[in-house]
Design a protein around this nucleic acid. Sequence first.
DNA 1: ACTTTAAGATACGGCACCGTTGCTTAGAAA
DNA 2: TTTCTAAGCAACGGTGCCGTATCTTAAAGT
Lengths: 240, 240
Amino acid sequence: MTPGTPEATDTRAAHETRETPEATDVRATREGTEAPEARETPRTPSRATRRRGRALVDAIHDAVLRETTENGVARLTMEGVARRAGTAKTSLYRRWSTPEDILMEALHGAYPQEEPSPGADDLRGDLVAALMLFHGLMEQEPLGPVMLSCVAEASYRPEFNERLWREVYEPRGGRFTATVLRYYADRGGVDPARVTPVTIDVGEAMMVKYTLDRLEPPSPAYVERIVDEVLLPALGRDPR
Amino acid sequence: MTPGTPEATDTRAAHETRETPEATDVRATREGTEAPEARETPRTPSRATRRRGRALVDAIHDAVLRETTENGVARLTMEGVARRAGTAKTSLYRRWSTPEDILMEALHGAYPQEEPSPGADDLRGDLVAALMLFHGLMEQEPLGPVMLSCVAEASYRPEFNERLWREVYEPRGGRFTATVLRYYADRGGVDPARVTPVTIDVGEAMMVKYTLDRLEPPSPAYVERIVDEVLLPALGRDPR
DNA sequence: ACTTTAAGATACGGCACCGTTGCTTAGAAA
DNA sequence: TTTCTAAGCAACGGTGCCGTATCTTAAAGT
């Protein structure tokens, strides 16, 4: 207990007074250092309680997602995530070795696993519902922006793209209009020959393009227009 | 053959021996420094000739585009561009203040300004031609990958997105199927009521989605399928 | 109550990039 | 040729992140 230490902040004082073998000279260095002060990322203050296990991991997942929406995948750093989560870098490195590992895990957990459940005999209604499911995904904070950023990153990093498919998309289903199209094709509501890679993709393609251009998902009315003006005609069921 | 190898130091030697007012001590420091050795970015060797004006700017434009294809917009740095262009940071700061400024200028210059020129009376052929124009854009190195990376960056940076539209897309035309659709709508080949934001966008949307998913543009055959299976039906001209 | 485990705080050397400065020198203009 | 302009080189102090190490301490397990 070296006496005479400035009382500083309570928590810090505890560390300042720790005794090391070569206490004297080392402490001299330490007293010279100033408080680091304001950084870029919001610093979550050290809390009274200390989180462990799931609670901590959840907080970190949340932090990595928010970091990504604000800075993008490419600018993710361990320090940033730690700062945002209000934890120590050490706790991150204990479980993961890169920020992207954390992101993948967070995405896997946050990605919704609902599938569209076509029913009745309402092709149009089921298509709209399927696209609205996709819509909900892109609209929901922070998942929507994060997914956009991931798509962006994936566009010039094949390994990242692969990982995204393997660790997020595929394990989580994520077939939207495809489910509906196959359902009706099997039951004669749609000509199976019309269910092609092109027609399967066109609904989501329109949603993605719209969102990339305007930086926000289309309105529900626009989603219906996609179905009426493109999807149904492509299925040979032009409403006009 | 690798640039930056020790014996390439001839040019540097000239600077080592330069005489400064306080020559002695300053040079002492310098002699202590080692050659920087291999960096991340390919270092273009200092050439015999010294480029100026357009030639230099062109080289820098080229460098920024290649940097972007490899690292993405988010990881652009002045040092990286300078290294790649084989020039000095000083020369960059003389003209631009951020790597993105350079990128915008390079894109503006590199973006093709052709417009589809619909002719004859061949709606299908003109649509395919228009999409193939777009296809050529995405396929051509380094423009395609760069545009993808820009789309990615734009997805979480509204100012960047705005700038892209203002400084690249809009001044360079870049209407593809839209031009064709309006042409035929004016001449009765297509019902004007069918030319909507949705139908105008769907061709490009499919191209973009395909490229984002697979990291390469679709084949010409696939482009034709887009026209046959989606675009024409949406225009009320289902080939079946 | 005591022990074990995991979270947290702090520091460290290293590195890449920042934006700037002082200077040399090649190329173009006079 | 000489003069002027712009390109190039090297260095600087500063910052942010890297990955690791050391030590303290709260929380969970016994």
